[in-house]
Design a binder for these strands. Sequence first.
DNA 1: ATCGTCATAATTTTT
DNA 2: TTATGACGAT
Length: 723
Amino acid sequence: METSTLLERLNDAQRRAVSAAADQHLLVLAGAGSGKTRVLTHRMAWLCQQHHLSPYSLLAVTFTNKAAAEMRSRLGELLQMPVSGLWVGTFHGLAHRLLRLHWQEAGLPQNFQIIDSDDQLRLAKRIVKELGLDDKRWPPKQAVWFINARKEEGRRAAHLEAHGNPIEQGWIRIYLAYEAACQRGGQVDFAELLLRVVELLRDNDSLREHYQNRFSHLLVDEFQDSNELQYAWLRLLTGEHGTLFAVGDDDQSIYGWRGAKVANLLNFEQDLKGSEVIRLEQNYRSTALILKAANALISNNDNRLGKELWTAGEEGEPLTLYTAYDERDEARFVCQQVQNWVDNGGRRDEMAVLYRSNAQSRIFEEALISAVIPYRVYGGLRFFERAEIKDSLAYLRLLNNPHDDISFERAVNHPPRGIGVRTVEQIRLQAQQGQVSLWEATEQLLAAKTLKGRAASALAGFLTLMEQINTHCNGLDLGAQVEQVVEGSGLKIHFEKDRSDKGRARVENLQELVGAAGSFQGDAHAEMSPLDAFLAHAALEAGETQGGEWEDCLQLMTLHSAKGLEFPVVFMVGIEEGLFPHQRTLEEPKQLEEERRLCYVGITRARQQLYLCHAENRRLYGRELYPQPSRFLEELPAECLQELRPRLNVRRPVYRSAASNQAAAPTPRGRGQGVGKRVRHSKFGEGVVTDTEGQGDHARVQVNFATAGSKWLVLSYAKLEYL
DNA sequence: ATCGTCATAATTTTT
DNA sequence: TTATGACGAT
């Protein structure tokens, strides 16, 4: 491809980023919808074509498999070459690849396996128990959090100091035992993948120099989401002579709560000498009014590098603000708008409902089912996380390495074969005493005839079964091996007994697993057996949330999972104080700012139409709430908004376009006028009118007071002040 | 081993 | 409200 064509379809800022000097560190502040993937891939192509660099001297890293796949395919188009061996992937995927190449130097067994968060939690549970610690004081979930957080700081258990704090001491003991268990079983968790590589590069001079020389250019996507460890990784690879090209957006940093350090981005200029910052502010996605709202909202945050999105496109329709009576009314409203869009020739999959927390999806699902609108909910268990799949994988891993205790525990009684917790506990004890694996402990117990009849024969049966499967698998290809496991383990027969939908789905999933293994094409790099490659693939790419065809479905997801996506029509729902911003973020200004960025992310998902909804009345955790509209709504310029149903308690002037009058206001069902009004009573304080009855002097209103609860009051006596 | 009962807690999630 | 986990009973 000619150079000219590479720069041709870029705007000025994009072109400056792509064609910057080859040794220039760059931070590209890429606003939402400003074409960052395009800049990233074009930069890579530019370096190859203009500076005659080999594509193999570039390393490009992202966070998700999806983003990595996107980058690969677009790069392939630009370079017109197969892209399979290139160093383009996720942090974890690339770290894994390095560890497979240098397992020895990294102190790992060659057949090391990746464990996912579910395995990790199981292991933590076992360890807390084995150490005899109280799981009330040291909940395994928190132990996992502790371990991961320390690893992300680059700290090993041996480096930690309890400072006489017994709780801390407990965490450290757990971490220590956890490390030992993983090392013994050849297991590596997600954080460990990164930490091992950082340690490897840090401590092994020749290896570090090798890779620093090899990768002249490092490129990162979604830089604002990187954590300490990931940043250390990048800096080690960059070294003195490498060049870092980071793309990110501080305004879209929404993962601070899980360790992402925006500081990595904010300090870029200081950290990398002679670096430059380029802003991509032209937006190719949304209408001008949507961008205006987004800009106004985010300007309420401090500590940002600053950026203002603009478009050469149309002004577009105003944002629609809908004040629902309650959460069911909110859902009904969305259904109605979806129906309208479809009736006018639109597709359902052009629309998305975005909410703050997963619990909100239920009410929408109910409404959508009764309105017969097909929908798809994001989130939930992915393919390789399903129990029946994890069971099958446990057998495969155990065949690979009998000393894999995590897999042993899982496989030994799945499907149930009469090996109960009692028996397993005995095995654990034996293993602990002899410092051997569960498999060895089982052999010892059987040889010593310590176990009684039933348990002993069941266990012996299990060992024989594993040997049988092993023999049968010999020489088979991957697909046939997996089939052998699914059948031989008894898992298939076990789930076939379950005649319910759930059981049938599980059997189908097992079938699909066999199919997936059969057609699996592992990457040719890093000499791994097909089975190892498949197991790594299963751990690193958990697969789709839901299999099957999802044609033309309304999309339901959290605001977090919407990042990176776009839709012609977006509904943001539940925009209320306490829900969004969430209750738990109200105290810390930092957290509140992250909520605001989340709102910014939501707004900027919309291409043409954005609906903002909130309810006056919401049932949450079995309690009736009367939430205030979110502060974020008030931060939007009035001239961007139209209220579809003018609220009775207008708290500020709201610009109303001609369009707002055409839509009929849905009436709160069968309730009197005034319902929803906010009132103040001299004695009971503030509340909301929830019902009315009667006329004239006898008229009564039901008011739910914030502090005094719900009361019926006679209007002519109560002297209510309307707010 | 499976089922029922009780307590408890209840953002956000990728690898 | 509801979902999950722990615990005890069949």
